[in-house]
Design a protein around this nucleic acid. Structure first.
Lengths: 128, 128
DNA sequence: GCAGTTTTCTACGTTTCGTAGAACTCTAAC
DNA sequence: GTTAGAGTTCTACGAAACGTAGAAAACTGC
């Protein structure tokens, strides 16, 4: 129960991009616009989706614990529970966690990281 | 097309555990045995599967690029394309790769790694 | 109270995965 | 060289996840 579908991801991308909570309608509009400019990460191009579709997806994302909704206001407002970075990092831990030989995996992982990122990691590890 | 089903994972676990290529029959037998001892990572307990089931799963894993088969010998022999560590590390890169802010993700990731592993990482990074 | 907006319920088509029978293809023994 | 048995491929079905959305219910402002 970790991976997202195409539309689910598109919605999360919007929620992660905009810092404020958004309504289903807003999201539907943004989904329709995305990718009109140039090739972003939008698989859902100019497609005009029904609002109910977006709502269904949002409910599913809520059930998965990725999205939180304010039920107080009438047009409910939705927002990501954690930032994209937090979520991605969590996912990485999930992937890593299922391995009995974590250190060996980390070794491979580090082996194929760019020098710039390696430098960043060194700094981060120094702080511990 | 990255995540595995329960049975697919069980099969991969066997292929990763045994260093030699195995036949579908062998795998079926091992799947049946697993977990008789104590709680391993075997969701597929004493269940006796049909060989065709195992073959289907192996074919799917082959299509996904996780498994390789020797077609020369008659009972085809199957083996993992890459080690579990390689595969897991690759998965981690996949997860990370989809993020625009890789460094921020790495920061979060490192932040929640055990001290022992941090030490390992420091060593590995020193070698670059 | 009513019209419009918003949310929930229900549903259907597609894909993935567990599962396996039926049919086809080898190989070894005769 | 034919055949029986082992092995592989084809085909298929049920369950779950996901994209998609209409119908119905709930709410809000007038």
């Amino acid at each position: 129960m970790a991976s997202l579908g195409e539309l689910e991801r598109a919605v999360m991308d919007l929620l992660w991009a905009g810092q404020e909570a958004a309504t289903a309608n807003t999201l539907r509009d943004r989904l329709a616009q995305t990718s009109s400019g140039q090739g972003g990460a939008a698989a859902h191009e100019g497609k005009e989706l029904a609002v109910t579709t977006v709502l269904t997806v949002l409910s599913r994302l809520e059930k998965k614990g990725l999205v939180e909704r304010e039920r107080g206001t009438r047009p409910h407002r939705y927002q990501a529970v954690s930032s994209r970075e937090e979520h991605t990092a969590e996912l990485m831990h999930e992937v890593l966690g299922s391995a009995p030989d974590r250190e060996a995996v980390l070794a491979r992982f580090i082996g194929s990281v760019s020098e710039g990122e390696a430098e960043t990691l060194r700094k981060l590890l120094g702080h511990l």
